[in-house]
């Protein structure tokens, strides 16, 4: 079945079964390897993308549900890789193995869109669906605060 999608601002056509999880359409048909496969049941968050402003687990989202939606993957988060979260992630050396981090950053990006200055509690609520098996949580929290600070400073300046 031919489906029209909008991924990272670009319209694309894919010919797949409509119940194919969005994750596998991104990875295997559109060659976007940023979203990762971790569990297949929406429990680890490694596959997180942003759909119309909300963090979604693409491994349990059938591709048909993405039609007429704006889908953003880690590849489309910024043009040059310098979204404040990406910069903060590098400055604080957040990744260990790095496998979950695209999903972590996308969950954090959705959070900052709605909540530019999140509290620790708001970070907990937004991020506890993202598992980091290496345990980088202390730095993920710090990097979100840092990115929020920088984005706000940039706006006020």
């Amino acid at each position: 079945m031919s489906l029209s999608l909008k991924i990272n601002g670009q319209p694309v056509q894919v010919d797949v079964s409509p119940d194919t999880p969005l994750l596998w359409v991104l990875r295997e048909h559109l060659d976007l390897k940023g979203p990762k496969f971790g569990c297949g049941v929406g429990s680890c968050g490694a596959c997180t993308v942003i759909m119309n402003g909300n963090a979604m687990r693409s491994c349990i989202t059938p591709v048909i549900a993405a039609v007429n939606m704006e889908v953003t993957t880690i590849e489309g988060l910024s043009e040059d890789g310098n979204h404040p979260l990406q910069v903060a992630w590098r400055e604080l050396d957040v990744p260990q193995c790095g496998y979950c981090q695209a999903g972590q950053i996308m969950s954090a990006a959705a959070l900052l869109q709605h909540t530019p200055r999140p509290t620790d509690e708001q970070i907990n609520d937004a991020m506890n669906g993202n598992l980091c098996r290496c345990g980088t949580y202390v730095r993920i929290r710090a990097a979100i605060h840092k990115a929020a600070d920088q984005a706000n400073t940039a706006h006020s300046g």
Binding site: D31, F37, T73, G81, D93, A102
Partner: peptide
């Protein structure tokens, strides 16, 4: 000295870096 990982740009921009990404 505090040194950020050499793959961090690739990781934070979703480059195909991991075994699962190999084609």
């Amino acid at each position: 000295k505090f040194t950020s990982g050499v793959d961090n740009f690739a990781i934070t921009t979703g480059k195909p870096l991991f075994g699962i990404d190999v084609t």
